[in-house]
Amino acid sequence: MGTVSVKDVARLAGVSVGTVSNVLNSPEKVTAATLQRVQDAIDKLGFVRNDAARQLRLGSSTAIGLLILDVRNPFFTELARGAEDYAARFGFSVVLGNSDEDSARESGYLDLFEQQRVRGVLISPIGDVSARLHKLRQRGTRAVLVDRVSADSAFSSVSVDDVAGGSIAANHLLESGRRRIAFLGGPASFRQVSDRLAGARSAVAAHPGAALEVIEASASTVQAGSEVARRILARAEADRPDAIFASNDLLAIGALQVLAASGEVRVPDDIAFVGYDDIDFASASIVPLTSVRQPAALMGETAVQLLFSEVEDLGAKPQAVQFQPELVIRASSAREGSTG
């Protein structure tokens, strides 16, 4: 038997399709006898109401689109969990899209979200998507930037002060006596990466005799961090950095594991490490990783709150919420006997 339709219910109950619609949506408009007859027909046929189609027709979907850069990164997983938990409290669901740092894929997900008439979009963009988000808003879909500040202040955003985070990380390494710091980062075109680098550069510039080397990784993954570590091992010992600040924890963990397991480098005595995000794996690394913590779950929750505010009041001005990062010191950056 195929899918049971409203017409099938109406035919069995001996009423019009409009009456069945009233039973489903406005039962107070239907007499008790008719209501019972239609309900009996629904039960007998096993009719299941298609709420998704109804919401799309009414323009009142309870779905929110969340588009992230890399679903493999636990930071984004935690952010998504925060958004999902908060949205669920109000009967909303979160539909997750993974751009995988691919612009064409990002565009495809934005098309899909618009076609599905989601209530709004939360996006951690690859580059500047302002023009695309303006078009979405003109067609009725609101958007909030996540882990990024709106360049033209036209959109609400939730972010962390990454310049401050980069400065905190570099200053910690400098204060522990490190002077040859390497910044290990993914594509410099990502605002998060460039901001963290800017903060580190500022801190190093304020310390005479300190130098900052920039090493660009092929991606923001454990594997990419491991590849960089092997290149560092190939250098003469005197040419290696004495500290590595990675733009995220996955890169830091990949590099740290290769260097620590090599037998040639002692962590942190020879090379200290600081990562970024403070994912769960940071504390369980081969050498527990010092990291700059971002409140990922709170960021996801706040993004949904901002989206709800805009949906409820279409004239509301965009809000920019920025959290401050926090350094969590572990063994990867504290020499033996150091108090950190």
Score class of each variant (00 low, 15 high):
residue 3 T to E: 12
residue 4 V to I: 13
residue 11 R to P: 11
residue 17 V to C: 03
residue 26 S to L: 03
residue 29 K to C: 05
residue 31 T to M: 08
residue 33 A to C: 02
residue 39 Q to C: 01
residue 48 V to D: 00
residue 57 R to K: 15
residue 57 R to S: 14
residue 70 D to T: 08
residue 74 P to S: 02
residue 99 S to T: 08
residue 104 A to R: 14
residue 105 R to V: 10
residue 108 G to I: 12
residue 109 Y to L: 06
residue 115 Q to C: 05
residue 118 V to F: 00
residue 118 V to H: 03
residue 122 L to K: 07
residue 126 I to P: 04
residue 134 H to Q: 15
residue 142 R to W: 11
residue 143 A to H: 02
residue 146 V to W: 00
residue 148 R to N: 01
residue 151 A to K: 14
residue 153 S to C: 08
residue 159 S to Q: 05
residue 159 S to H: 09
residue 164 A to N: 07
residue 174 L to A: 08
residue 177 G to P: 10
residue 178 R to K: 12
residue 182 A to F: 03
residue 190 F to P: 00
residue 194 S to K: 06
residue 195 D to I: 02
residue 205 A to M: 06
residue 210 A to D: 01
residue 221 T to M: 11
residue 230 R to Y: 00
residue 234 A to C: 06
residue 238 A to R: 15
residue 250 L to V: 00
residue 251 L to P: 01
residue 251 L to Q: 05
residue 269 D to K: 07
residue 278 D to Q: 10
residue 286 I to E: 03
residue 294 Q to S: 08
residue 301 E to I: 07
residue 302 T to A: 12
residue 305 Q to M: 13
residue 306 L to C: 03
residue 307 L to V: 02
residue 314 L to E: 15
residue 325 P to F: 08
residue 329 I to W: 05
residue 330 R to I: 01
residue 333 S to M: 02
residue 333 S to G: 11
residue 340 G to S: 15
